[in-house]
Simulated scan of single mutants.
Amino acid sequence: MAAVTLGNGSQVISSDTVPFTLWCAARYLHDYQEALWTTVAGYGDRDTTCAIVGGIVNLSTDATSIPAEWRDAREPLFL
C-alpha cells in the first residue's frame, strides 16, 4: 500500500503526511468519497490526511461531489 512507502501522517511531520495525501488526491481527483475511503485505509493521522485530501479533491470538483448524506450530517456552517 502507498502509505507504507509514502507515510501516513503518523509521525506528524509534513514529509510523512504530504506525499501520501497528494497520492490519494491525485488517484481519486474526481471521486471525493473514494479519495477519503482510500485515505482512511492508510491509517495514521486520519483527521489530518482526510482534511488535506478532502480539500484538494473538493477544489477539483464541487460541493455536490460530497455525498448528500455526509453534507446533511455535518454541523451547520455559520457565515
Rank of each mutant, 00 (worst) to 15 (best):
G54H: 04
T21K: 04
L36I: 15
Y43R: 10
S10V: 11
Q33G: 00
L59R: 11
V12Y: 09
L77F: 07
F20L: 14
L77N: 02
I66S: 02
W70Y: 09
P76C: 03
W23N: 13
V53S: 08
T5K: 11
S60A: 15
L29P: 02
R71E: 04
A73M: 09
A26S: 14
E34R: 01
A2N: 06
A35H: 05
A2K: 07
R74N: 06
Y43S: 14
H30V: 08
F78A: 03
T38M: 11
S10D: 13
F20Q: 08
A41K: 14
P76G: 05
Y28A: 10
T61P: 00
L36W: 08
Q11K: 01
T17I: 10
L79A: 05
G54D: 01
P67H: 02
A73F: 03
S65Q: 09
D16G: 13
S60V: 05
D45Y: 08
G54A: 07
V40T: 15
I13M: 06
V53N: 04
P67W: 01
R46A: 11
F78Y: 09
L36Y: 12
A73S: 13
T17K: 11
T64P: 00
E69L: 00
W70M: 03
R46Q: 06
L77P: 00
L22N: 14
D47W: 08
V4F: 05
I66Y: 01
T39F: 11
T48D: 02
